[in-house]
Design a protein around this nucleic acid. Sequence first.
DNA 1: TAGATTGTTAATCGATTAACAATC
DNA 2: TAGATTGTTAATCGATTAACAATC
Lengths: 219, 219
Amino acid sequence: MKQVKVSNNVIRRLPRYLRKLDELSENGVDKISSRQLGEQLGLTSSQVRQDFNCFGEFGQQGYGYNVLALREQIAGILGMDRGFRAILIGVGNIGRALMENFCFDDWGVRLAAAFDIKPALIGTEYKGVKIYSMEELESYLENNQVNIAVLTVPKAAAIPVTERLTAGGIDAIWNFTNVELTEPNSSTIVENVHFSDSLLSLSYFVAERCDEKAAREEQ
Amino acid sequence: MKQVKVSNNVIRRLPRYLRKLDELSENGVDKISSRQLGEQLGLTSSQVRQDFNCFGEFGQQGYGYNVLALREQIAGILGMDRGFRAILIGVGNIGRALMENFCFDDWGVRLAAAFDIKPALIGTEYKGVKIYSMEELESYLENNQVNIAVLTVPKAAAIPVTERLTAGGIDAIWNFTNVELTEPNSSTIVENVHFSDSLLSLSYFVAERCDEKAAREEQ
DNA sequence: TAGATTGTTAATCGATTAACAATC
DNA sequence: TAGATTGTTAATCGATTAACAATC
């Protein structure tokens, strides 16, 4: 795998390729060209080939790409085969929704433990994941390999918990709180899931469409 | 407001400006320069000024930007003052988590109704929102102004429900299913919240860091 | 007024697209 | 072999950054 400097845009497209390839192989498709793949994702064939060329040569000239082989390559690039381990902090509504509905295993991530402050929850299991007390966080991090913390705590707890996780040497935080955690000087990777940002972008496009409609009617 | 053709990148930054401006005004800050704002968001001052210049002149030379005034401008651009109305389809875990924890009103969106197929839920209220039967969807859309559908149904229901929403003339779908809904020929706006894409991007960065660490140790 | 900072034009940089030789 | 399609280089396009006159 060559791996020079891969742009953020490319990285954000990789999971989309993966999803499409999974869908194709489910439908029994075993080969695909960059043109076909691009068409199905709204990309040009050039872009598809350029994206893959960041990482190596996965296709065959005159043939295209083998769906399963390409899928495995991309899965590898995304680190799905590395056995990354995650813990979830905050077993509230969002936390529970994730534990219940989101198949971490499907994406190569093992959800190994959960943490909460609510005494009634501590020591219990939810969906096969044991819930620990927040007081045990530091010792757990010390005694177990943990790469990712899924942060689903209330807004007020976001910063202090983040500091504890960073001090505990966690690699990355998957942030579901609406708090901006990205610290310029910190080396912890942060991936934000900002529902409000997503809704507001959507709202922008709806407003734009309303304006266009109004403009057309005015004529 | 001028509004030529605004790039997607700019639109995705607007909610971040909004969040930062809210935070600043909470902390009693009433003016800010493009340089300061950029620093706090990891952007250059040029970029901040260019972004705002897509929509008009919101600052004052020699002074900077008034935090509250700028906040209102951006809120307006994002359509937060338009009274957009949303319905939620699928009162499962994710749906409930959103109804309970996500303040639609804070972002200018009114969550007006929810829909589900489960008989025990139909007719009840959850967090002040009435739950209707899925059979009532078409008539509801006909009799009420609805802009946005929050799609939190199981994977299998995603496509058929989307077709009904599109037929019912909905403007936009906020898609929480892991299904790719974006139809090339459809005019419905789709905003995807793909948890798996987000986690996989994070996983990529963790893998990258592991590789770097390993490379350093090898030397 | 002098200093600061905007709005905006020009320069640079990077990402996407086009083109085509290599080759299956 | 002929046709198809990759891998890759070159051209284009768009977004970001730099610069600076306008002006508060």
